[in-house]
Every structure is written in structure tokens, then in C-alpha cells.
Design a protein around this nucleic acid. Structure first.
Lengths: 233, 233
DNA sequence: CTAGCTCAGTTGGTTAGAGCAGCTGACTCT
DNA sequence: AGAGTCAGCTGCTCTAACCAACTGAGCTAG
């Protein structure tokens, strides 16, 4: 017997994790069926399912109805859900959780822009140019699509050359975006947004670290300002 | 009916989340018992439990055997678990996931040190002094305890005045520390470690941003160097 | 011979009911 | 008045049966 005081479900989860690690299973690899796991681990189907539900919530396994169970993508998706819920719950309880989330993004992205300035590959710079242009086209028609903003930040962070870091930043963006659409309407001026993004792009293109930091800070400062102003319920 | 194609468990989770948000329940508040939830939501006990297991994995609820179910701490603990597993699994598959995790910490902490330099409250500075001294005492006896290093970083980040940000940084520290103890032995020179921490402290005390960034980068650069050198299996 | 449909088998999803296990608080005995 | 005990809540695990989704082999029609 392994873990006595911590419950069997947790024990089963640990054993399934070990199974994945010991066998070097990559994302997408098939795992034993529920019936097999139940025999393999010597527990009931119910316990297996509860353990899998927990692992699924952490992105460690992926369950497909009628097909099978697989090693999960291990993306940052669970973190997004957690951050989102934490922020929304805090917001409704009167905390400034939304501002904290924005500050988290601001602090991290401002700190990282110095590392990016002057080091963006030409291909990514071209993509960023195209994205800013699309952004301006969308702004002329009323509002910038969220997907375009997301693509801009994603392309920018690609230069960091660290998949984990990029995913974490993307997760922060996602969480903030979802909170924003669920809770408040920032009614930002699309033209201002465009100008700020172009400024960031030009700064990193020329490799001007100080200017780049100022541009990013300006971008977030603008959002922060709108966050403080009266908005909703 | 809400989600038809996404399964009932996910639907139940959503409804429990709504329950917490709509009633403004704070962390630690009691939730309905399994029996009550089962009647309230009109589903079987098993489905309720599977949903709760998923929420528990995300830190949204906390289940105490024989006592009840409560609103969870909503800390970053689930993220630590996820990062840890992702990194360990990647490492065993031959990826440089450990280095990526270290770089994540390095990038974020280096970027944030500028925001801290010269802005640490005297009380925190005193605590940091005490921690470096303890570190030196421990170094003289062989090795610096992990808890001391953790406390140093935690005290340093307290000055950020953003609980979410501090927790995220702490989570990154935890994940890296656990991976490190599980996978590799960095056998760092404790005296060097002490010197680096003192240097960081002096730099932020005097408010010298450039020196502070260099100190942090030096600290991480040292760890990164050891990570590359031959180590284990 | 091929394109499309059908259906049986496999796998996960849900329900039901029974009994086990841990914790709390009130009750009892000293 | 203090310490031990036990009844009762609570969550935990198991069994067994049936429902629902998906795949792929085999059949049918063109």
C-alpha cells in the first residue's frame, strides 16, 4: 500500500503519471482503457475514472468518449482556467483581481521586451508588419478583432525562443482576454490600440530597448486606465 | 440544457463554479454535501464526485474526508503540479524542458528586478539581510537549505505589491526546485550562492537597476551552467 | 470495382445501491 | 471538571448494470 492518509484516488493518479513518465509516452499516445487500468491497478472502475478526471483537469490525460484515453497535450490550458476562475471570483467579491492580472501581464511583458528588442528574426518582423496592417484595417471598420491582437503578441513572443515561456505568456493573455469579455467592456479606441502596437513593433525592430519598454508600458497603462474608469455592474 | 456534446461532468463543474461565483463564496466557505449537490443538480452521486475531483485538481474546491467540501484556496498549486509533470516528462523524453523552466524563471525575475530596485520597504530589507546571514551560516555547515533560498525570493518579491504576481513567481520557484531535487543534483557551491544573493540584495538596496539585473542574471547563469554540465542518468 | 451505408463491437459516460472510513461534537463515566 | 467513548455526519470505494459515442469491417448499391 502506498499512500494511506492521502486517499486512493491521489495514489492512482500518481501511478498513472509514473506510467506515462516511465514509458516515455509522448502527447497523444494511447493509455490503457479504463477496464485495463482497473485490472492493472487493482481498483474499481469508479476510482480509476475519478483519478482520470483529476488528471484530465490538469491536462495530463485526454479522454475521448467512445475512443479511448490518451496522454494529454500538457498545455497551459488548465492554468488559464484556474486564473480565469480565480480572477472572476475575486472580482465579484470586490477584489481588484482583474487589475492584478493585468499587472502580471504588464510586469512580465515589460521585462521581456528588452530581451526581444533587436533580436526578432526578419520573418517574424514581416508577420508583425502584416498583423499591424490587418489591425489598422479592422480598426477602420470599427474594432480590432481579439484574434488579431492575440496573433500579434504570439508572433512577438516567438522570438523568445522558449516554447514554455511563450505558452505561459499566451496563457496570461488568454486569461485576461476571457475575463475582459466576461466582465467588462473596456471600449478602447481601436486607432490608439493600433498606434501603440505599431510603436512597439518599430521599437523592437530598431532595437531601441528604452523605447520598446516605454511602448509596452504605454500600451498597458492605457488598458489600466480604462480598467479604473466606471464600467459595469 | 447546457452542454450536450461536452459531457455532463463538465456541465456539473460549470454549475458548481457558477454557484461559487454567484454566491460570492470566499475561500474556505462550505459547499453543499455530495448528497445535496446530487439532489440540487439532479445527477447521480458518482457524477457529482467526478466533477468535484476535476475541480479539486484545479484548486477550486477542497475536499476533506469525513468533514465536507469547501471552496478551495485557488492558489497556484495546480500550476506547479502541471509544470512539474510537464517538465519531468519532457526531460525523460530527452527534451531540454528543465532548461526551459529555468529560463522562464530567469526571464521573468530579471525583468522584474528593475521594478524592485530601490523600492523595497526597510522592513523587507531587514528580513532579506537576516536571510542572507542565515544562508551564510548554513553554507558554512555544508549546504544552504532550500527553504532559506525560497524565503529569500519570496521576501524579495513581496515588494512587487501584487499577490498574484508573487504567487506565480513562487510557483515557478517551487516547480523548478521540485524538478531539481527529483532529477538532478546541481551540487552548487554554497559560498558562491551566498555571494550572489548578497549581491542581489545590495543592488536592490542601493537602487542600482543595472547592477541588480546583472546580479540576477549572474545567479541564473550560474545555475544554467551547472545544468549543462554532466550530471545524472 | 468503388463509394457509401449499416451495424456490431469497443470504449467511455451515467446511474443505482451498498458498505467502508475519517472526522466532529455531544454524551458519559470517572 | 476532565478525559474517554460513541453516534452521526461526511466523504470514499466497490459492484453491477445499462446508456452513448466512436471506429472500422462488411455489406449494398451504383
Amino acid at each position: 500500500m502506498a499512500a494511506r492518509t492521502r486517499g486512493m484516488a491521489s495514489d492512482i493518479q500518481e501511478r498513472i503519471k509514473r506510467l506515462i513518465i516511465d514509458q516515455r509516452l509522448p502527447s497523444g499516445a494511447p493509455l490503457p482503457t479504463e477496464t485495463e487500468l482497473m485490472e492493472l491497478l487493482g481498483v474499481s472502475r469508479n476510482s480509476v475514472r475519478e483519478a482520470l478526471k483529476g488528471l484530465q483537469a490538469m491536462g495530463i490525460v485526454e479522454i475521448r468518449h467512445g475512443f479511448g484515453t490518451y496522454v494529454g497535450p500538457m498545455s497551459m490550458a488548465p492554468m488559464i482556467e484556474g486564473l480565469l476562475f480565480r480572477t472572476v471570483a475575486g472580482h465579484y467579491r470586490g477584489e481588484d483581481s482583474l487589475l492584478q492580472l493585468l499587472e502580471l501581464r504588464e510586469a512580465v511583458e515589460t521585462g521581456l521586451i528588452a530581451r526581444l528588442a533587436g533580436r526578432i528574426p526578419p520573418a517574424d518582423l514581416a508577420e508583425l508588419d502584416a498583423l499591424v496592417e490587418r489591425m489598422e484595417a479592422e480598426a477602420a471598420e470599427g474594432a480590432v478583432r481579439a484574434e488579431t491582437d492575440r496573433a500579434f503578441h504570439a508572433a512577438l513572443h516567438r522570438g523568445l525562443d522558449n516554447l514554455l515561456l511563450s505558452e505561459v505568456l499566451e496563457a496570461f493573455w488568454d486569461a485576461f482576454h476571457r475575463v475582459r469579455t466576461d466582465l467588462v467592456d473596456l471600449h478602447a479606441d481601436p486607432k490608439v490600440t493600433c498606434r501603440q502596437h505599431r510603436e512597439i513593433l518599430e521599437a523592437v525592430r530598431t532595437g531601441d530597448v528604452v523605447r520598446a519598454e516605454a511602448a509596452v508600458r504605454d500600451h498597458f497603462g492605457d488598458i489600466r486606465e480604462r480598467l479604473r474608469s466606471p464600467h459595469h455592474d
